[in-house]
Nucleic acid binder design. Structure first.
Lengths: 124, 124
DNA sequence: CTGCGACCTGGAGTGCACTCCAGGTCAACT
DNA sequence: AGTTGACCTGGAGTGCACTCCAGGTCGCAG
């Protein structure tokens, strides 16, 4: 199993060292292994998981959402049922967000057409 | 031309009175008319414009983006060329955001399938 | 053995977008 | 005339998600 020094993990995930440590403190990903001297050693599993976190954050989920998700994953009392529900909930929320964005896009298109067309007139 | 008291403008735009005043202070929309006593009187033009602002904010544009847009609209030295460009730039950025979201959606779908399928096993 | 650079910690600081507050004004109702 | 409620102002406070910092440790190159 490949492992990564902090700098390399940072590079691969696109997060700063600080943010990586911050996420870890918040419990967003597993206890990272350490060398005897206390330096972090990230596994590729860690890196992959952080990749997912970044993805979800890009998708607009907040830190607390991710924490809840981790909570569900950790204490899987009664199987991972809760996890699926949580993910699906976010999935539909995401669809909502995309819909909103598309509305905004349409409005933008309208405005662009308006300004391109009626270039110099004052008001209608 | 219809006009609105602050409370009504708030209701119609979905923004709080505070936020409305905040946006006005930042110059995101025109100088609002006042009564002799200093109370604001919003025109329907104001309300419509704020609607657009809300839309763009929903779409992920920051306050500074909106300020730049207003700047372009106000001093139209050389026509509204800058405005169109700015809107189109944001349009393509929006497309990018939507793409990102779709990626996140796909990843989510994968995870959902994974957790629904391999419900109880430890690791692969 | 001395530097150097990468890393560690806890805690303070930052930027954004609001949101709240105290203290005051005004118009209308009773 | 007094009370109420919507509104005003400038400025302070909030929550989020980082980001920076001081002061310290470790391992290796020269």
């Amino acid at each position: 199993m490949t492992t990564y020094a902090p700098a390399e993990a940072s590079e691969r995930t696109g997060l700063s060292l600080d943010t990586l440590r911050y996420y870890e403190r918040l419990g967003l990903f597993g206890p990272v292994r350490r060398t005897s001297a206390g330096r972090r050693v990230y596994s590729d599993h860690d890196v992959a998981w952080v990749g997912l976190l970044v993805c979800l954050r890009n998708a607009g989920l907040g830190i607390s959402d991710l924490q809840r998700l981790m909570g569900r994953l950790r204490d899987r009392s009664g199987g991972p049922t809760g996890v699926v529900e949580l993910l699906e909930e976010h999935r539909s929320r995401l669809h909502g967000e995309i819909a909103k964005m598309n509305v905004a896009l349409d409005v933008l298109d309208d405005k662009i057409a308006h300004y391109r067309g009626a270039a110099d007139q004052s008001k209608k």
